[in-house]
Design a protein around this nucleic acid. Sequence first.
DNA 1: CTCTGTGAAAACATTCACAGCG
DNA 2: CGCTGTGAATGTTTTCACAGAG
Lengths: 240, 240
Amino acid sequence: MRNPYYGPVPEKKPIPRPAARRLSLYLRELSSRLEQGEATVSSKALGRSLGLTDAQVRKDLAICGQLGHPGRGYTISDLVGSLRKIMGRDRDWRVCVVGSGNIGRALVSYDRFRREGFEIVAVFDANPAVAGQEVGGLRVQPMRDLSTTVAAERINLGIVAVPREAAQQVADALVAAGVRGILNFAPRRIEVREGIGIVSVDFTVALEQLAFQTATGLDLSFEDGDHADEPTDGDAPTSV
Amino acid sequence: MRNPYYGPVPEKKPIPRPAARRLSLYLRELSSRLEQGEATVSSKALGRSLGLTDAQVRKDLAICGQLGHPGRGYTISDLVGSLRKIMGRDRDWRVCVVGSGNIGRALVSYDRFRREGFEIVAVFDANPAVAGQEVGGLRVQPMRDLSTTVAAERINLGIVAVPREAAQQVADALVAAGVRGILNFAPRRIEVREGIGIVSVDFTVALEQLAFQTATGLDLSFEDGDHADEPTDGDAPTSV
DNA sequence: CTCTGTGAAAACATTCACAGCG
DNA sequence: CGCTGTGAATGTTTTCACAGAG
């Protein structure tokens, strides 16, 4: 959104991938501080809470524009507002869960989603015996209703909580129904077409990372645990 | 802790952090192929499944030693064996879950853990009303039994599935009881002393990453979803 | 010809260090 | 002073490209 007509090109600079991952953590910490009644915070203090250096924090927050006040720090509410906007947290996210097994049910009942602005409005399950049961205040719907409900409820994100074997198929159905992004809990890589978001969480991978850290002794340590697959275009790089 | 005496030192080179994250994904994909009855695989084919370039795959697998056969590819079973060893998957992991809410119960019942060699042998809950109930074949124990049971059952990993407010305290209790690593599902950073492993999974952060990807349109995509906090030593860098 | 292993180059990310604001 | 914003330096990861094995 700069330099309309001709000239050196609009050029919205891309957010560094590792920074993008950290943005969520800033938002989480800042919201928490805001609730505690704090009004400002310095890059040093924030870094301490998050295990980052102050320089790193300043570089990351520079993504939000120049919100810091030299000598004073950052105004938390401004930062929260800016982060929410950048991360797409200012819009409405309407979510459905596919799979009403242990994980699906736990997610539907996970109150924090709603409090954070992600509203789960439908649950589906392929098992006809389960359809009609109630989970977290919602009636489980049969898969056949998927596309109708996604449209009617204006659902834009889908959560896949089905067995490995069914995961890709379910993801395809969700995309076909119109969701724009998928959060996958099945232990496999999901391929989606360009333009559809995909993030995966694999509990076993997380435990394995932990075993690795623990076995390796004390040294190496790393970051994020859940992974975001690549939008499967041609020769997409990135991870599963 | 570096180079005690003088001399060239054995020098086991450290595994690049991003590579460490990918190792789990290789193992997952390779195990699956092994089950399908495949015996060998090329870096190119593996990369295709995982969304990585063939060069990346070769560099990563070089960590396991020289297991590839030029012109032929890698023998999957060798790779799986080597990966399991490197990742500490060759030993026994005995796990307890603290918190028998929705998430805790889902995890206790998550069969894949056992099949992958992580045995959940105890569940704890601070609520006395819950103690004694059965969850996934285990009797929920009161917190007061934590250290006794951890010792008696030789538990080495703990899963924290309690509300945010109690998380740090529970983590401290687990470490005091003797676990060597913690998998944290509470939405906050957990601090542990040097030498204790820590990996966090935050569902809201994962959904947020998805919202970000989706809102940002089609472009940037990233990796892992769950995060591993840093072992809180002095000025530890890394993320939450 | 296919496919690995690997230095060397390129891209990317973090840390440093300091000018400048309040 | 304390603290931000940012180029320049450093460190890390990925990609390239090719020699050499089967």
